[in-house]
Design a protein around this nucleic acid. Structure first.
Lengths: 354, 354
DNA sequence: GTCAACGACTAATGCGCTTTAGTGTGTTAC
DNA sequence: GTAACACACTAAAGCGCATTAGTCGTTGAC
């Protein structure tokens, strides 16, 4: 029953129709010298007519690379499909890649080991020319691995900006430190002195940076009741952490959440306990999304253009693939967008506990 | 500066080390007859030692297919990165694909034309062996195109289940009709008679099916004040539609939203206007997610296991690639999970408008 | 004792493309 | 008038693998 539909044209077909050799076709279509402009134009026209596209497999086999970049997401299935961050990032990434005819190979795995295994396999299979690495960690094994494999990569989200970039590994980092400082500044100006930071996964590098910056800011401004607690980014842990904080002796007057999902979950917890936001509790979300704009009150959020971030990452990867030197650059500074969930700190007794 | 790191082993390396010919290696590693079991074992061992993986490019070139499936998402950037649906779906999809060593090529484009262009390109480039097609529409050009190109595909989300499957196109559809019936039943039992369905994109097949079923149910139960309005799935249009509905003469006592994002946006609109949920307005979300569980009140939602849906779709694709016949099957029926956002219909005057 | 058949393996070809090494022609230099 | 050379193009090799067509030695049948 297998039909043999529309056969795909090859350069041989073009060569035959244009009455030249296959090599002439290759030269013509790749802009190489060796054919006259007249012939080149003729060949181009024939190729167009036939709807020819180079076979990526054949290209890859003759040393041109796979025309594909890879992106692996190591997230337990549980915490997946929530944050808007990744789809946006991916969207931006492949917008740029597609512009250069590169495909994006995408995989979701459970953990870091599996991610490394995927890299090894992709490398051995010659599936990808380069990679985008997300969620960098402290003591991240991936840059070294990729360096050893000779796979160019862009680490998205920073390795502390520290350490000279490896072989062909660029780094694109967001200014978490500056962002955190601006959040604390915003809250401080509103009179908040007891601030809790409900952070994400403790092993991620940017989590650590945010926590460190919070500590530094607290020290600088002399705020004793400021702390971070880590979670797995899930709504469940965000809610749980919020409950614990609100149940304490001296509950915070403001909470900063490391993602939108937890912020929304925290808001729901507050609403459920009759804690008015922002009258008794201010809430800030790190990363904006529809979520933050759709709640009532709308959440003050740290806005960054994630799709643009993805585009930039992809551009850095292309530069590497073109043989450019690895770089380590900071992307645009995120901006705090104040909305209804932050307001002046509540003095006196926290609030009527229900 | 380009290093030449760890060279990837080829079957030639294995052949040399095992002291056999390259063909023997190929036979051994592919389970083909032509080598003794002893030799086969030895070759396998050597391959293992060298960490050999077949080059997908070479495989593809010698007619074995690209070991890759494709998935294109045609969504205007604006409405992207919100719904949990896709990341979950993709997660399920490639869990199954990865089990068979298939990669997933992922692309986001702006519209249907661009999507078709991607299919053509991938086909000509021999990049993919098969495709997963999402968001089927009325008069969808894609199945015919893919059929013409000879690309196996699984249409996820149904072409009305109607029409014999094409060449190598399977269909996996969710039971939107049954789901809508269960939602209407739930609301009817709570006393709701005026129900608005804030639907998604009108051109999508499942939107039409849901709308048709709603009309049928309304007719069957004799409910005159039941209607659907279409949107682009965005929070903005969801909120806008909600505002319009609530401002009408005889506002609905219940609203069904076609995705979680609009439901949350609708809830925020209600909260902003002082319309108590569920006392004065019941809300149902189609598709559950963290969002629905994180709001206050939590949203009654239609729960389906999207990752499983993706897994099943991938399995059907694998079956097609193995030469199996195209099928058209219905996936598990979604389940309505009642939460706090639905309650008895409010009699009398709608509510105190603020 | 010869021939067919079989098992275990090797040689050779092709997939579609890039690239290097030619080949033949026209032009310029002296 | 021949050498040197640029130019437009062709021939051939190679990328890594699968596959088809051999090759060679061993068995079994008659």
């Amino acid at each position: 029953m297998r039909r043999t539909p529309a056969r795909r044209p090859t350069i041989k077909d073009i060569a035959r129709r244009a009455g030249v050799s296959e090599s002439a076709v290759s030269f013509a279509l790749n802009g190489r010298p060796g054919v006259s402009e007249v012939t080149r134009a003729r060949i181009r026209r024939v190729a167009e007519e036939l709807g020819w596209q180079p076979s990526t497999a054949a290209r890859a086999l003759s040393g041109e690379g796979a025309a594909t970049a890879g992106l692996v997401l190591a997230r337990p299935a549980r915490t997946l499909g929530v944050e808007s961050f990744f789809l946006q990032l991916v969207s931006g990434v492949q917008e740029v890649l597609a512009g250069r005819g590169l495909g994006l190979l995408f995989q979701v795995v459970e953990d870091l080991d599996a991610e490394c295994a995927v890299y090894r396999r992709w490398w051995a299979e010659r599936r990808v020319d380069g990679l985008l690495v997300v969620d960098p960690r402290a003591d991240d094994p991936r840059p070294a691995l990729l360096d050893r494999l000779g796979l160019p990569a862009v680490v998205v989200g920073a390795l502390d900006g520290r350490g000279a970039p490896h072989g062909a590994i660029s780094t694109l980092w967001a200014d978490d430190t500056g962002a955190m400082a601006s959040i604390v500044g915003h809250l401080y100006d509103l009179g908040h002195r007891r601030i809790t930071h409900i952070a994400g996964l403790p092993e991620l590098a940017h989590t650590r940076r945010r926590m460190a910056c919070l500590r530094a800011e607290a020290a600088r401004r002399g705020l004793p009741d400021v702390r971070s607690v880590t979670t797995d980014y899930s709504d469940a842990q965000g809610a749980e952490a919020t409950r614990r904080e609100l149940a304490g002796d001296r509950p915070p007057t403001a909470i900063v959440y490391d993602n939108d999902v937890m912020a929304v979950a925290g808001l729901a917890v507050a609403a459920g306990r009759g804690v008015p936001v922002p009258a008794a509790l201010s809430i800030v979300a790190w990363d904006d999304s529809v979520l933050c704009r759709s709640t009532h009150p709308a959440l003050t959020a740290l806005v960054r253009d994630t799709a643009a971030f993805g585009r930039h990452a992809a551009e850095h990867l292309l530069a590497l693939l073109d043989g450019g030197p690895p770089v380590s650059v900071q992307d645009a500074v995120p901006r705090l967008c104040p909305r209804a969930s932050t307001g002046p700190a509540c003095k006196g007794a926290p609030w009527p506990v229900v």
